Amino acid sequence: MPPNLTGYYRFVSQDNMENYLRALDINVALRKLVCLLKPDKEIIHTGDHMIIRTLTSLRNYIMDFDLGVEFEEDLGPVDGRKCQTTVYWDGDQLVCEQRGEKRNRGWRHWLEGDQLHLRMTAEDEVCVQVFQKVK
């Protein structure tokens, strides 16, 4: 049985965000700004339905999806692209595959104790973020 990720998580750290954003062709000014952000994550996990909110002072991004069902994801707020996205469980990791203009694009969420880990990939770049569960 996969874990229930429901909770509110505060940003702790990140590694390699600049190179990850460069792989997504984000302009240098926006890259610098995004690297300064400390996003919170709110996850609502009910059966096969999930809502993941990434909350920042700049803008928020909300994913609302059913596990295992492909959908068109509008990444306009992130990088102006759309892609075909599928989110599913791989053991105790929540995996997102985003098919579109960029190869190897997607992410994984998993828990280690009360910390939520996020590994994002695009092309050959990997960015890792860590969040602390606060409620």
Rank of each mutant, 00 (worst) to 15 (best):
G113P: 08
L75W: 07
Q129D: 01
E123L: 08
D124I: 01
E70A: 15
W107N: 11
L67G: 08
L58C: 07
E123C: 11
D124L: 03
D79T: 00
A122S: 15
E101S: 12
R105F: 06
L75G: 14
R119W: 04
E73F: 02
E125A: 15
T86E: 07
D124E: 14
D66Q: 12
H117D: 01
R103T: 09
G47A: 09
Q84D: 09
R81H: 13
G113C: 08
D66R: 11
T121W: 00
I51Q: 10
L111R: 05
Y61S: 09
V126Y: 00
R108A: 12
C83D: 01
G68P: 04
T121L: 04
D74W: 03
L94F: 08
W107I: 01
M50W: 06
E112K: 15
D66W: 10
N60T: 11
D64M: 09
L55T: 08
D48H: 04
T54C: 10
D124R: 04
I52L: 12
V126A: 03
T54E: 13
D79W: 01
L55D: 01
H109M: 12
W89A: 07
K82H: 13
E123D: 10
E101P: 05
L67M: 10
Q115M: 13
L111C: 05
Y88H: 14
G106L: 04
D64I: 06
T56M: 01
L111A: 03
D48E: 12
I44A: 06
T85Q: 06
H49M: 02
L67A: 08
G113E: 06
G100W: 00
V130S: 05
D74G: 00
E125R: 12
G113W: 07
G100D: 00
D66H: 14
R81M: 09
D90A: 13
C96V: 10
H49Y: 05
M63D: 14
E97T: 11
E101G: 14
G100I: 01
V95C: 14
Q115L: 12
M50I: 14
R59Y: 11
R103F: 08
Y61C: 10
D92W: 11
E123K: 10
V126D: 05
C127Q: 02
T54H: 06
G91S: 10
V69K: 15
L67Y: 04
I51R: 12
W110T: 02
H45S: 06
C96S: 12
A122D: 01
T54W: 03
